[in-house]
Design a protein around this nucleic acid. Structure first.
Lengths: 197, 197, 197, 197
DNA sequence: TGAGTTAGAATGGCACCACCCGTC
DNA sequence: GACGGGTGGTGCCATTCTAACTCA
């Protein structure tokens, strides 16, 4: 299975999602994470600690490495344009668009996603990330908005937790991090992974 | 005075900073905000509400409009590369790099900023944004790190407040928003603006 | 069902009524709101926020869109003349005339409505809007006056609440607005909608 | 002096303003109020009671009557279009645009007024009417908005008082009405009249 | 008859509470 | 486990306007 992550907007937790979904797939079968972002955050992350259980490589090495892995997760850059997203969609089985609930970007996100639907692609899903705790309701509203528009969206959502940043800083998967909320953080990505199967 | 905002990473509050700094300058002299981001967030923001006290226009109209304004704020896109930033720096009096304290991006930010210094430019400053409330210390640590490296950084910093998102959603300046923390949010940008004068 | 809103006098809450009745019908079946007012307030309203759950379009697009919708609400302009109203009545199943209780306009409203009855139309109803709180009794008196004249009038009436203006400013339905009286405001239109069925 | 009243939106207190400004001018010199509105509200108002101290006539009689009066106030209809307003402006010394602070109409009002300015006319002023009591701040915000755009606006504003409706219902000037706030209501128009001289 | 008082309603501002997160 | 901070929800208060009532 080939999964691509591309965000409409930067700072939406794209790399974090790529890393943890790769970690989840690795529990099922050999998995490769291809870092296609200019900032090479996924690679840096993996090199900062003791290494991940799965292989991480720059996207250029896709051709060389792909045949050895059952699952491939591609972390690609920010793609604000529907046409850009269409390209990414065509190259994978499923495109995941991580999105933070933020009124500033809601408009653009909706428009882009609808444009994507109009182009004729349905093989993409939105993942709500960095969701603040209740009683904040922006995530709920964004979810409702997308559902009303018929956009596919993961039921699971990723809470805004320091544990993720700790993990990134330490070069670890959030599961391995010393944080009270580590398991909850990991569970949130596990739930998303299970939705994928 | 021409000020450009360019972020190393998306989602750092670049547009929010551009809008509110433009609002601050407008209190001093006629100000123009040029939106150079692909997502045209600043333009959308201004069109969502009753309009701003300052003029907002796409960056293409720079040549036509520039002569009528005392201050110009340019909201440009994400520029992860030091060379990209150098270009932006050369076209303005001061480049402001909004940055969120996040371990994931700290490394890349530092490297980019140091590369910028090595190239020979000093006319840029880092602005810490979306700073979580104490007792979180990531902002303090990032600040110390940058100061130790001799990077210019604003003393003022922008707290992570819902008021900013409310304002963006309503198409307003945060000052005008109905929120408990609206004045504090506005004061944080006022302080940054005063540092600039 | 095709419902037209036309007011004898401007500022009677015609657009507000059109928007909220359309929102009510949308809860029952696909609904289209046609904006036929020169000021295009309904369209602006819908574009100011995140969009409505129902479709809004200029009245010119009626022919193209009508077949896809179960209910159509038409927001037409001010029509002080009985002959003008007659035209509007003939083009729909029911004409709703929103009217504010105001001694200045009572005379003209009564005369117009009676002229309309004399012409031979009964498929219109008056809706009292912007009703001030007790102990003001103008609304009661206007209602009694109209009932005595045999004019059809909605039992439900719309109170004068800031929530409606907030909603209009935010580009939302009043139900979604952050206001203490939002639900009461919405309930008042729900009651009117139920009277219609 | 020839003063015309034209509102961007109905229900803004246009007729009320015309009547009371005519009453004010009558205290200075012989004044004529021309009713050019289709609903003939000003004429009806004057005929409902004992008559006004000034002369009221349909606008068609302008040519016949004008020469006998020092001041003429013209109550014309709703004119949502800047071009319509331009016509009205050219026919008088000053155009007064009564406007109610209402988020729904703010956008349209601003655009119309700015278009009027762009056309090249400066001989018009906005009058805030039906201003709700504090702590509501919409009037303040609309005033600030207009001032920021450089639109001429009366310092005096007309409060939303029942006294005006009582007066209209009784065919009187508000000054003569039996209401606790009658003098305050009258004073508000007196202040506007003094601003005109 | 006229002036002062009272009750009811709506608005905005403020304080308080519960819940959640992060650090110590 | 305690503490500080942000967010949303609820409730209270001051202000204003209207109509009805009371009292001189």
């Amino acid at each position: 299975m080939i999964i691509t992550l591309a965000s409409y907007k930067g700072g939406a937790g794209k790399t974090t999602s790529a890393v943890h979904l790769a970690a989840y797939f690795q529990t099922l079968a050999p998995t490769l994470l291809l870092d296609g972002d200019k900032t090479k955050n996924a690679l840096n992350w993996s090199q900062r600690g003791k290494g991940f259980s799965f292989r991480v490589a720059p996207v250029d090495q896709a051709a060389r490495l792909a045949k050895n892995y059952e699952h491939i997760v591609i972390d690609t850059g920010q793609r604000p344009d529907a046409a850009d997203l269409k390209e990414a969609v065509d190259a994978c089985d499923l495109l995941i668009i991580p999105a933070t609930p933020s009124p500033l970007d809601t408009d653009g996100l909706i428009q882009t996603v609808l444009a994507l639907k109009k182009i004729g692609t349905d093989s993409f899903r939105v993942l709500l990330t960095k969701v603040p705790p209740p009683p904040e309701r922006d995530a709920l509203e964004l979810r409702k908005l997308l559902e009303d528009e018929g956009v596919s969206i993961f039921k699971g959502e990723i809470p805004r937790l320091k544990a993720f940043e700790k993990a990134a800083g330490a070069g670890e998967i959030v599961q391995q991090t010393n944080d009270r909320n580590a398991t909850r953080a990991w569970d949130s990505y596990m739930a998303v992974g299970k939705e994928l199967m």
